[in-house]
Structure formats: C-alpha cells, structure tokens
Design a protein around this nucleic acid. Structure first.
Lengths: 215, 215
DNA sequence: ATAGCTAGAATGAACGTTCATTTACTTCGC
DNA sequence: GCGAAGTAAATGAACGTTCATTCTAGCTAT
C-alpha cells in the first residue's frame, strides 16, 4: 500500500481553499525555500547550487523541499519570476518616485555594488540573462517581462519629457527607453567587472547622457 | 612498475622545445579541444557542459582530454583567457579602424545578435561576467583584462575627442570610456532579452549619446 | 626492405563522488 | 489515533577523472 503522493497536493493552489491554516504554513515554507534558494543561486549560480545546499540553508531536509516544489527546475522558475517581479517593478518605481533619473540609476548602481539586496543582485541578473540563451522556457518568461518593463520605462520617459516641454511619439519614447535600459543593464556588468568604479566618477557624464535621452 | 605520468609532460611549454613535431600536434589538439569546449560552453554554460559532451564535440575520447588539460577548470580558464583576448582586442580594433564609434558599436551589436561568431558571443560574455561574482580566480583574470580594455578605450576616446578639437584629461577620458563600456555591455544584455531590437531603432539616439561622450 | 621495438597517442570502461529525487519511517497537532 | 509535516537513508543516474590497454608511426638492426 504505497501512497506516492500526498492527498492534498500542496503544490496546487487548491490546497489554499481546502484548509486555510495549513495553507498559510505551506506558503510560508515555500517562501523559506525560495529565500534559501535565492541565496544559493547568488552564491553558486543556478546550475551549481545543489538541493542539499538549499535545504541546509533553509534549515530543513532535502526531501521536504519536494513536498513544496516538484523539482529544482520549478524552484529556478519561481526564483526567476520573483526576481523579474521585484527587479523590474522596483526600477520603474524608483524612476517614478525620484524624478531625478540619474540619481535613481546611480542608487541602483550602488545597490548592486553593495550586493546586500538579494532581490537586486547583479550576478543573479547576469546569470539569468545568460540562461535565456540556453533555456527557451526561461527565455520566454524573461522576454515577456522585459517587454513590460520596457513599456513602463517608455512611459516614464514620455512623462518626464512632457514635463520638460517635449512631446514624444510612442516610437521615439521607446528608442530612448531602450537606450536607458541598455545603460542600466550595462551597469550590472560594470559593477562586476570593475568593482572600484565609483558613483562620483559615473555621475557627470551619466547626467549629460540622460539629459540627451530625455530632451 | 607503473609510470603514472608521461615522461614528456604535454601540459608544460617545455615539451615544445623537446620535440617540435609532437609539439605542433599537441598545440593543434589543444585548439581542437578548446574549440569544442567553447561551442559546448555557449550551448550549455560553463557549469552544465560536461567533459563527455566536449569530447564528443571534439570527436575524441573523454580520457584524451586529460592528456592536454589537467582538469575541466583549466579548460574553462583557457576559454576565458582566449575570449578576453579576442573580445576586448577586437572591440578596440573596430573602434580604432572605423573612426565612426556608433557604427562600430552597432556592428558589434549585430554580430552578437547573429550569434555566428563564437569569439564574440553574448551568452558567453554574460555567463563569464556572472562567474566573476562566484570564482575569485576568474574574477581576477577578468578584472585585469577589463582594466586593459578600459585603458585602451580611454585612449580611443582621447584621440577622437582631440580630432574634434577637445583636449581631455586622463580622468575625463576615463569617465567617458566607462560609460561607453557600459553601453556596449548593456547591448549584450539587450541582445539576449529583446531579440527583436533593431539596429535602425538603436542608431539615432546612440549617435546623439556618443556625440555627448566624445565632445 | 622489413621485422621488431619503442614511446607517444588514443580509447573506453571503471572508479569514486555528487546530485536530484524517492521511499520508508518518525513526530506532531488536533 | 489519524493525517499532515518532517526526516534521513536509499536510489540510480550523471559527472569528472583515472587507468589498463590498444593503436600507430617512426626508428633501428639485420
């Protein structure tokens, strides 16, 4: 008499409806596993991080992970989706709230440089982008999200340009946001390849470049 | 009576002096293995590419690889060094020869987009950069080379600015080359995350931005 | 010329290890 | 006491690496 699968499958949202108390616990456990996985992925990369290490970091047994996730690939997928959610939204939010695009970008630069925010990690960003060239499923998710981020950034560009008295067409705003995105993502690479790079030496020219992009 | 190591160690340059005929064969084999490894690394990433797959791609047995390389890590190191050599030098050469910095950058963009040149692959570049955040040895090699590339780029900036009648200090040229590098590396990320991005939509704003950086 | 010898080149099976995943068992809350 | 939560050992596949063995090309003595 083997019972290969739990009767209430925690991996489906159906469990949430069935028993609310257990569901919140399950959700918390999933978060715990994802937090640990994120830490491990940053430390070792998606491929090299082992389930054993993730389990140890989460403070649970390796087998227990499989109660909450079907496979390692599903954890990777969940981390990527979470990262895309926070990373993209956070960047747009910063630009929207600060009004000073240059300062917002330099803040992001410093955040990457410190490496203290697991949600905005340069290594993870680069690894994730590289993975797109190899895993079509990941590529699709990333490109879908990237399109949304690009749209959001284009809107920010249009809004700021309008505040400066310039009316941009959709296409023109998009060309400018593409280059802005290029700059931001380039900073991720710069952070890693030149750790000595300072905000102060970046600021003057970045200001002038962004001025061109918004006028 | 076992003889654990070959008397002429192919992995040391000393072998080249000893027997020139065999040395050229060894060098050719090493190149063959590196070419195969490069292909596999682009296809699967540094971590996921297996020695068996590299051997199969090279058309030799798995064991033979160890006659020419001590370990997989050494192959990774050799590929990275080869990549840094060609990638950096090639970019500077293009800028030096074309005089039109914008066109040279867009050429590089298209080269990455086509993905036909194994020496200039965006996925490999991103993977390699991500690896810096995890392997200190790789980080050191990449950062040393990055410094040289930055110096070269700063010189190009100074030269072009001077041709336009602007004299830049070393620090000013460096600030500009940092942002140029930022743009170029951002393009590697853009190529992967937005495959539909076109040279024609990039060109107008890139021209204006580069104009600012060189004047 | 050629048979025998030698050493490097190459093979492929086997090794020990590690990994993701499964299974059998225990603990805990209700 | 029953089902859910959790553990730890087991499993088989895959990995990097090694090793005994075979192949091959060039040299030497006859």
């Amino acid at each position: 008499m083997n019972n290969p699968r739990p009767i209430t499958n925690l991996r489906t949202p159906a469990a949430a409806q069935a028993r609310p108390a257990a569901a919140t616990h399950a959700a918390r456990q999933r978060e715990r596993i994802l937090d640990a996985a994120e830490k491990c992925f940053i430390e070792s990369g998606f491929q090299a991080a082992s389930m054993a290490h993730i389990a140890q970091t989460a403070g649970i047994s390796a087998g227990l992970i499989y109660r909450y996730f079907d496979s390692k690939a599903m954890i990777v997928k969940a981390i990527i989706e979470r990262h895309l959610e926070t990373d993209g939204a956070c960047a747009i939010d910063r630009l929207n709230s600060s009004e000073d695009v240059c300062a917002a970008m330099l803040d992001l630069f410093e955040c990457w440089q410190r490496g203290d925010d697991p949600k905005m990690n340069a290594g993870l960003f680069l690894d994730l982008t590289a993975e797109c060239t190899r895993d079509p499923q990941i590529a699709r998710v990333v490109r879908d999200k990237d399109k949304l981020i690009g749209d959001g950034l284009a809107q920010v560009v249009r809004r700021i340009a309008r505040a400066r008295g310039v009316i941009l067409t959709d296409a023109a705003a998009r060309d400018r946001s593409d280059l802005l995105q290029c700059l931001m993502e380039g900073l991720a690479s710069r952070v890693v390849r030149d750790p000595k790079l300072r905000r102060s030496s970046l600021k003057p020219m970045l200001e002038r470049v962004i001025d061109v992009l918004l006028a």
